[in-house]
Design a protein around this nucleic acid. Sequence first.
DNA 1: GACTGATTGAAACGTTCGTATGATTCAAGC
DNA 2: GCTTGAATCATACGAACGTTTCAATCAGTC
Lengths: 205, 205
Amino acid sequence: MQGVSLRRITKEADVNLASIHYHFGSKENLFRRVLERRIEPLNAERLELLGTVESGSAKGVLSLEAVLEAFLAPAVRLRYNRSGAGVLFSALMGQIFQNPDSEIRALAAQLFREVYLRFLSALGNALPGLTEEERRWRFHLMVGTAAFTLSAPGGLIGDGGSLADGGMFVDGNPLPDDPDEALSRLVSFLTAGMRSRGPSQGEGA
Amino acid sequence: MQGVSLRRITKEADVNLASIHYHFGSKENLFRRVLERRIEPLNAERLELLGTVESGSAKGVLSLEAVLEAFLAPAVRLRYNRSGAGVLFSALMGQIFQNPDSEIRALAAQLFREVYLRFLSALGNALPGLTEEERRWRFHLMVGTAAFTLSAPGGLIGDGGSLADGGMFVDGNPLPDDPDEALSRLVSFLTAGMRSRGPSQGEGA
DNA sequence: GACTGATTGAAACGTTCGTATGATTCAAGC
DNA sequence: GCTTGAATCATACGAACGTTTCAATCAGTC
């Protein structure tokens, strides 16, 4: 709720300051509506893709790649495609996940709840060997990887302050220009991680 | 630089408001010093562990697990151990990575620059088959996974607004209570991802 | 015990914030 | 063409912000 003022928003939108309270009631309500407007289509697309994966396969186990792709592809496409709003929205989501204000996180979490449960269940089908705790943990790791990668402000935007420019990723943008390439890299990295033998059973090459 | 006021800081620290400007000059300078105080020991510990890994192995390839552990262990320990400051600092770092203010990100990136380069080079030894671009990309994914996991405000702190409580991770805290368990899970997930066959060469079980 | 330089104190500065108010503009119905 | 309800406008309010100011306090030194 901080970081941008209503005065800047209304100026950029070329509307009067008071109109926000007339139409939305409060800054918080405006924020909630912005979130819903972007997240709901994202959720719908994810569920539709997952449905296709589930109905396409026999009643047996699901393909892990396909499930992860159903989860990741809409987010990657959103990040790359929608005019320039996708970049901004992805950055916004990254900030929300890290926001110390628990009410803001709760609001976002609520909007993702149904999709989360559906994919967690699908992951159970795709990875039948895992305990539920391990499955949740790995899903969390997967979400974190995708969220950080897609939302890092310095990723796509070379604005001089990215990790790329400032020192961490010295030689440029870690996100590929091509969304399909970004997606397939994410999927291959994450399927390997999701299938890893786990911490307790020993590890090796 | 926003999210907490100097008035709240000075009240919590039980000092006078003006003393910050006397000792630090500005809010921004105080912020920089706070970052340095935490990051510099973290950097030193990471480099020391990496040095041990490098000198311990023959001149051949490094163990990927060992390199990742040298990178991750200090951050995990920081998150879990240091009184309660580790949780707060980890949350702060998560916010910094996602901050739209490029100067703040540049400041943090600069503090991590040397460590980044050393580990990127070490990863080249541990994973000799990768192109440099692919190596950078996977390192980015690794940092993202660790940063998101360790810093998510709702992870360790059950404050009612975490993903866990609000809907995403419905049944509780995704971070284990035991730092060693968190570390070994991170390492096994990430080594598998780092070693994945990659997007172009095809994929499968 | 007065002097000095460093530190801390209370108070105020000018801005900016979200919100509220009441007049004004505008399109639609008759 | 007047009425009516929705929408927009300029403006103001009180609170909170980072910063500044300058007097009060403190620890050493002679």
